[in-house]
Design a protein around this nucleic acid. Structure first.
Lengths: 358, 358
DNA sequence: TTGTATGCGTTATCAT
DNA sequence: ATGATAACGCATACAA
């Protein structure tokens, strides 16, 4: 350990004194926010070096400036779950990209209402230092978090959430896109279809879709996508998956396709992973895709790693979701008007959808 | 917008005045760090509500307390790249889990030396408020970051990095594990093997391993794993992949297996994704695994989603890596001694390794 | 170009 | 159980 290790942390005042200048001059030497004679600056920097001064304290600076340089990103539940959804990665990347240009970094937070925590202990969301927040949970139960953040006067952007007053909405045209996909199926002649949905509620339980799903749904995108299908099909079979994964899709597929007497000719899945799982189930049951069964996905993941199936799917602009949120946050922080954003999904033809078997 | 929106943010002082108590008492009412009469507290809370006070300012509190509740996690390069490595997700999850119990949250940072940024602008790592940092880049070029953080007196833990003075080391027995895998291959009778390595340097370029790889290697785990193989095999073919991905493994596999006259009987890959890529290449060339070619992976990812191959691989305790780092950080922050951690990988037999064809 | 003075919003210490 | 006071470390408006 070096000689400075035991000494107390040096402050800007100490550096200033050592350099023989005032605190303000020393401050300017570091921030560059004002004119300083080159030689004076050198003296200050020199003093800083000998004192082992690590630069202005970020916290003190934040207090003074009223900015922390931190944007909270609220992810539902555990990180593990959040990152299991392949769409969250590029979204975060786009967000980080956009925020990075402004020197902002991302603080990972979990939704206190989904994570099981003591109500006694204040949630991190109440106490974390941040300039703004991006909500990505997609859960209607965000209300509590939003109320909290509003009281703290923290600007909020929400991705794919139900629109809320005072929250910058970064939306996907989930309903329209889903209807588009459904219409394509209908055009091709499919009359008996099944839908595999993402978790609609916080329970994350699997099973046939309940009659009253709409009243109990808390996942806005999942509900919207389902509504989109119902815009085209009056009746359908619905199966709710407990997560967006191949395994869940596989299970759903087995259930839906089990009875040979009563099989749909097409399955509309609310995510690509679910679609891949359904295809695997079909495989196992000896069904050819798309000859015996059409499968439509949602997301547009690179299926490269997943066995080489070219999924017909609705591609969502995941990176752009993050970018748009980032830009929106930047505007909010700048006090500029931040208009809501609506991003569009597109249908990408693949090898998994065709006309029903005659 | 409500009535408070235009008014300036309320402070604790304002709340105290309104409630007719001193600032200290108001403070105690919120923090619960001292005795306050129940009715007094109610009055304070009531005043806070009518004033729209959102609770103590985290920044001011941090300044006073000397703690931010934030732990920086330095990931190399872009988030997209970082999350492409499947091991980083459970690691982060374990870390978040452990830190969460102490009310700490994770600030995502990128390594300023890998990300291309102006040297003029101070890197976030220099200016972000945090109590401690976890390094996960695995790059030897962490020196610069470490120096910076040391000057700031910020405790550091590093996962799978080359041990450094004053940095809490959370290590994997990469070399031993790799040697173990290689020994298994040797036992089975393989004499002509090839290794597909992770990127050894920051260039992320693909190609045959250079003679002087060791001198230029900056990725400690990749170098260690390679050394492990060399502990068993004197000579081998080496191919460096530009990333840990199926696509890179596929390319590497094609190159290595191209010439039928000169094919290894086994490939040791430094990650499971690379191994899966090699297997796909073998498939394409009409080689059976493991009859014609043995393939060993590293990581122990759930291959469920990747086509159903049961990879023989070295399983690393990814979640535990994060947990250990989290616990270490907690101890550092508490001023307790934090012993370095060495985690062990285990060989998990699968269906991709067998004796060479006679 | 440099220095002086003040306040950012809290909490810890100590006294009452 | 409550109150007065003093930091925490810095950046800015303003004066020189």
């Amino acid at each position: 350990m070096d000689a400075h290790a035991t000494r107390a942390r040096a402050t800007l005042a100490a550096v200033a004194e050592r350099a023989g200048v005032s605190r303000s001059t020393a401050s300017l030497a570091f921030s560059g926010a004002g004119p300083v004679a080159p030689e004076t600056r050198d003296r200050v920097l020199e003093a800083a070096r000998t004192l082992g001064y690590g630069g202005p304290d970020p916290v003190a600076r934040s207090l003074r400036r009223g900015r922390t340089g931190i944007v909270g990103v609220v992810i539902e539940d555990r990180l593990r779950e959040a990152f299991r959804d392949p769409m969250n990665i590029p979204m975060l990347d786009g967000l980080a990209d956009e925020l990075g240009t402004a020197g902002l970094s991302i603080l990972l937070l979990t939704d206190p209402t989904t994570a099981g925590s003591d109500p006694g202990v204040p949630a991190v969301i109440e106490t974390a230092p941040m300039d703004a927040v991006v909500l990505v949970g997609c859960s209607t139960r965000l209300d509590a978090s939003v109320a909290l953040l509003r009281r703290r006067r923290i600007p909020i952007a929400a991705i794919e959430a139900e629109p809320m007053e005072g929250v910058l909405d970064i939306a996907l045209d989930n309903r329209r896109a889903s209807a588009l996909g459904a219409a394509r199926m209908h055009e091709l002649g499919h009359r008996d279809i099944a839908v595999v949905t993402l978790p609609l509620g916080p329970e994350h339980s699997a099973g046939a879709l309940a009659e009253d799903w709409e009243a109990r749904a808390t996942s806005f995108p999942a509900a919207e996508r389902l509504r989109g299908v119902l815009d085209v099909y009056d009746t359908l079979r619905g199966w709710m998956a407990p997560a967006s994964s191949i395994a869940s899709g596989y299970t759903a597929g087995l259930s839906i396709l089990a009875d040979p007497q009563h099989r749909p000719t097409a399955v509309i899945a609310q995510s690509d992973l679910l679609a891949l799982g359904v295809i695997r189930a079909a495989d196992e049951l000896g069904l050819m895709v798309p000859a015996d069964l059409s499968v439509l996905g949602f997301d547009g993941i690179r299926t490269e790693g997943y066995g080489g199936v070219e999924l017909t799917t609705l591609v969502q602009p995941a990176i752009e979701k993050g970018r748009a949120a980032g830009r929106g946050v930047l505007r909010l922080l700048a006090g500029e008007p931040a208009p809501p954003v609506l991003l569009r999904c597109t249908l990408r033809p693949g090898q998994t959808v065709g006309p029903p078997a005659a």
